[in-house]
């Protein structure tokens, strides 16, 4: 490698930092969405890098379904105390109480879809004109065509057929009153890049990502961890397995995977050899072939 050449991780990092700074310069009131998952933890880390030695010039927002893994919330709160950055929490329960969101019923009930309502309410309430997220193009095929700067109309909707062309590193964040942008600084990262970066930067993660023992059920091929929000069918019963999370979302729809990987090195080995996609375990993506595209059009992340 020549001396004036960056490694792929350095180049991806530089690209993400460039975008974060562009957001701070082009928007009046941006906010960064934070879920406590590895992608948003990386985004937070990159934001600290982008504005160092200053503080991050925008707040973080967590849309809390109330169905999170307790480990996620614990980690989130500790991280904010340690870094002194600002986090706003919006609760799906508040939207349900107000009547703007309606709780799903039935055996597979999940609050995952309801997050969109609370998110859009939160953005409107705070008058945020830009929300940054840690979505990656390799995650799902509807995301493969998402822009870094993704325009949303006044209803928060995405029009995939009418996206602005995006060339070189010239980003166009202009919009009308009431419209906003979704911005994805780590669009070009893959799951492997994320793990390598976590290893390289020595970034701390919630313990859920590492192998541990947990009581689970197997529902339609997806392993779900024990919690109060899942009602069992007659034929189902909890059994203990050695598992870890590949993604972290709601306990009601985040499938966990059987794994012995208890260090970053072992996780990277596992990611390198696995034959299944990261979101393969997400019950929310399995609802239909275009499930993600439909949710995104409505304003989901």
């Amino acid at each position: 490698m020549s001396s004036y050449n960056l490694t792929h991780l350095k180049e991806l990092e530089s690209e993400a930092i460039f975008i974060l700074r562009e957001v701070a310069a082009q928007f009046e009131k941006p906010v960064m969405l934070f879920s406590g998952g590895k992608d948003s933890i990386i985004m937070f880390h990159l934001a600290r890098k982008a504005f160092h030695p200053g503080k991050i010039p925008f707040p973080l927002m967590h849309v809390d379904t109330g169905h999170n893994f307790p480990e996620t919330i614990e980690f989130r709160d500790k991280l904010m105390v340690e870094t002194g950055e600002t986090l706003i929490v919006k609760y799906v329960k508040d939207s349900i109480d107000k009547g703007t969101a309606v709780e799903e019923t039935g055996i597979n009930a999940s609050r995952n879809g309801l997050q969109t309502v609370t998110l859009l309410e939160g953005l409107e309430e705070g008058k945020y004109d830009c929300a940054m997220g840690g979505a990656r193009r390799d995650e799902e095929k509807a995301r493969a065509k998402e822009r870094f700067f993704s325009h949303r109309d006044e209803f928060g909707q995405w029009d995939p057929k009418n996206q602005r062309p995006e060339l070189w590193n010239l980003f166009n964040g202009r919009k009308k009153m009431g419209e906003h942008f979704r911005i994805f600084p780590i669009s070009n990262w893959t799951e492997m890049d994320v793990w390598q970066y976590i290893l390289q930067e020595n970034i701390e993660l919630p313990s859920l990502y590492f192998s541990h023992k947990r009581e689970v059920i197997n529902r339609d091929g997806v392993l779900l961890g024990k919690c109060d929000y899942i009602a069992l069918k007659d034929t189902e019963k909890w059994e203990e397995r050695t598992i870890r999370c590949r993604t972290i979302g709601d306990m009601t729809c985040t499938g966990v995977a059987e794994s012995d990987a208890d260090t970053l090195e072992k996780i990277i080995e596992e990611v390198a050899t696995t034959r299944f996609t990261e979101r393969g375990g997400r019950a929310d993506d399995k609802r239909s072939e275009a499930a993600m595209e439909d949710r995104k059009k409505e304003g989901y992340f």
Partner: peptide
């Protein structure tokens, strides 16, 4: 393990 290290040295095309 050596492989993990190797991954950190890749270039981007």
């Amino acid at each position: 393990m050596r492989e993990t290290k190797g991954y950190l040295d890749m270039e981007l095309l």
